[in-house]
Nucleic acid binder design. Structure first.
Length: 488
DNA sequence: GCATGATCATGC
DNA sequence: GCATGATCATGC
């Protein structure tokens, strides 16, 4: 039998525990620690921090319910610290992690702690985490704490933490007077990083000397099955990370391929052609993987998976334009209009995603030449200005009712959703297998407000339109990759 | 030539 | 069957 949280919470003072922190408070009380906000680790003699974290079951096996949120970053105190003297290292070097099965339909007191682990960072991860800390610290040093986002780092991130987005903190007094206050943020281990740890070492069978699994329950609720990452790693020799960061290493690895033709790379890596003698549509994504020594999907390689890096290939035409806009998953407009910008799916996605752009440019002979790779995260100032406005405008259009006009000659339906001409970084366009304005069709999206139709065909519904998604405008992406294209 | 709506190809 | 990445086709 697994220990239920109510057994752990027997001696806990329920009155001082907030709704969101109950599981963690119960974990601390089990170890005889009262709720506090000390900078010290919870068990000071041992230097061990106590953390409780939820696990959910997905079709690929157990996953972290959320990122593991650590201590709040004091931009003033952290300013003069080094990694070894940082509040992150002091408080979170060793953690006693309790993993409970999160179930929203069950009272929290009945959640079970199914595994516990005395955790410190695997050696290779620690090198990446050190570099992540240095990146966060450089923002603090430069008085740019207001520009922090989760996507700028790999495993250790600065996530927002506060009652609302209006919870802000001052930056260091020695910085210029016009340095703005910054959103309150905490160190955190990314959701995908925790998922990897959970599947590989906590519920999986792989051994990691820095993670000691402690018996807590004989009850195995989670079956770690299904493929979540390919088993391939990019970095096998950790001494690489002692000399340079992960990103520097990747960019350097790609140097030797710069200027090579797509066709030469395809034959070098023996990419097969289809029946029509053409390369598959995903040819560039396949080449991206192969150049980095990965045979499967690059996003599923160890480091890309743990850091939640999205790989995007980019085609630049001979005239120096990007051929296509970049698509994102289709949304449900009824859910979209219920969201608030600060916690919206779109904002979360851009704030927490790191992208890896993989760039090919067409030459005058119509051949695609590899130009290089670039890691990219959307700058916070773009996100909270133009993208925010674009998002708000989209919601307003949906609330007012989308204007739809059927053009019988072309058999297409025009709409008044955000266009690329609006120059707001993102736009809204269809994303479905087929267009559909038919109720309950799998390619259609149900609208929150009936559409305002012009020339509606009888068979079309006024509440359903082809599924749409946000697209990142190609002119914006082109500005972001200028450094890679250089003079070409 | 480019923006926009539409659609293809692939993998799970 | 559907999500996702990639691309096509049309007309202003």
């Amino acid at each position: 039998m697994g220990k239920k949280l109510k057994a752990l919470a027997e001696n806990m003072d329920m009155k001082v525990s907030g709704k969101k922190s109950q599981a963690g408070d119960a974990w601390e009380s089990w170890f005889g620690v009262n709720k506090n906000s000390e900078a010290e680790a919870d068990l000071p003699e041992a230097g061990v921090e106590l953390k409780m974290t939820g696990v959910i079951n997905t079709k690929n096996g157990p996953s972290a319910k959320e990122r593991l949120v650590l201590n709040i970053i004091n931009y003033i105190e952290e300013y003069d610290k080094s990694f070894k003297t940082s509040s992150f290292w002091k408080k979170n070097r060793y953690m006693e992690l309790g993993f409970y099965n999160y179930d929203k339909d069950v009272n929290w007191l009945d959640w079970q702690v199914i595994k516990a682990a005395l955790f410190t960072y695997p050696e290779k991860d620690l090198l990446i985490i050190k570099n992540d800390w240095e990146i966060i610290h450089s923002y603090i040093r430069q008085g740019r704490a207001h520009e922090l986002s989760e996507g700028i780092t790999m495993y250790l991130a600065a996530c927002t933490k506060g009652a609302s987005s209006k919870t802000v903190r001052n930056q260091h007094p020695s910085l210029p007077n016009n340095t703005p206050q910054a959103k309150q943020r905490a160190y955190s281990l990314k959701n995908k990083y925790m998922t990897y740890i959970i599947r590989e070492f906590i519920f999986g069978t792989a051994l990691e000397p820095n993670i000691r699994i402690e018996p807590f329950s004989e009850n195995e609720i989670f079956e770690p099955e299904g493929e979540y990452y390919s088993g391939e790693s990019i970095i096998s020799d950790i001494s690489i990370l002692e000399k340079q960061s992960f990103e520097e290493y990747i960019i350097e690895q790609l140097q030797k391929f710069k200027g090579m033709k797509q066709s030469d790379l395809a034959s070098k890596y023996k990419i097969p052609k289809n029946g029509k003698g053409e390369y598959p549509k995903s040819i560039n994504a396949m080449l991206a993987s192969r150049m980095l020594g990965i045979h499967g999907n690059l996003e599923k390689s160890e480091e890309f998976f743990k850091a939640n890096i999205t790989v995007k290939t980019i085609h630049v035409t001979k005239k120096g334009r990007i051929k296509e806009n970049m698509s994102f998953p289709a949304f449900k407009s009824k859910e979209l209009v219920q969201e608030e910008w600060e916690t919206s799916t779109l904002r979360n996605m851009f704030d927490s995603s790191k992208f890896f752009f993989f760039i090919f440019q067409e030459n005058n002979n119509g051949e695609y030449i590899f130009r290089g790779g670039k890691f990219w995260t959307m700058p916070e100032q773009d996100l909270d200005t133009k993208v925010k406005n674009a998002w708000l405008a989209t919601i307003q259009t949906y609330r007012e009712g989308v204007q739809l006009t059927y053009l019988s000659k072309q058999k297409i339906v025009k709409n008044n959703l955000l266009s690329q001409r609006d120059k707001q970084i993102i736009s809204v366009r269809p994303h479905a297998q087929k267009s559909s304005y038919i109720a309950n069709n799998s390619n259609a999206d149900e609208l929150p407000t009936p559409a305002n139709w012009v020339n509606k065909p009888d068979s079309f519904s006024d509440r359903w339109m082809t599924k749409q998604c946000f697209w990142l405008n190609n002119d914006y992406v082109l500005e972001q990759i200028q450094g890679v294209l250089g003079n070409h």
